[in-house]
Amino acid sequence: MLSLFIGFTLVAALGLGHHYGLLAVRETTKGSDNHPRRVVVLTFLGLLAIHTVEILAFAGAYKALLAWGGLGSFGGGFDESWSGLVYFSGINFATLGYTQIETSGPIRMINMMQSLGGFMVLTWSATFLYSVSARAWQK
């Protein structure tokens, strides 16, 4: 149950951070109403930056949790490098964890919660980009 709580807490932080990231993207694109293509491109690039930071944050959380021990391990094709953690986090975030890296132990619950959180914020971002694009293309 500890791992489920950790996963829930990480996803809650993800949601809060994503909310404020979207607000920052919206603020950044203010005043570009006369340049609809610019708004769409800046929004896309802002979302790309937000998701990259989110993936890196989860990679950092996995690094800390693996160092802490007691929550399981990564196996299979995991090479125990920072790039391996970023790869695992990104694949898990964007494709529900279908990778050659295997998790064992309670850390699997955190892995599952990251997949849920990634799905939630990716669809949130898609909706945000769609609404920005719809407004921009109407002008």
Rank of each mutant, 00 (worst) to 15 (best):
V53P: 03
Y87F: 14
E27D: 15
A67D: 15
T99C: 03
R26M: 10
A67F: 05
K63V: 00
F78L: 10
K30L: 10
V39H: 01
G31T: 07
N34Q: 12
V86K: 00
L71F: 15
G46T: 03
S73T: 12
G60E: 10
D33Y: 12
F93V: 00
Y98N: 00
L56D: 05
G105V: 13
T95C: 01
K63T: 06
I110N: 09
L48R: 06
Q100C: 01
G60K: 06
A49D: 02
T28K: 08
Y87E: 09
E102F: 10
S32M: 14
K63D: 10
T43E: 09
I110T: 07
G60D: 08
W82D: 07
L45E: 11
A67T: 14
G90R: 02
S73Y: 12
T29N: 08
F78W: 14
V86R: 01
A61V: 04
I101Y: 01
I55G: 01
R26Y: 05
H35G: 03
F44A: 14
I91M: 08
W68L: 12
T95G: 04
I110Q: 06
K30H: 07
G76Y: 08
V41P: 06
L85M: 08
E27M: 07
L47A: 03
K63P: 00
D33E: 15
S104G: 11
S81H: 06
A59E: 05
R37F: 14
A61H: 07
F88K: 00
D79L: 04
A59I: 02
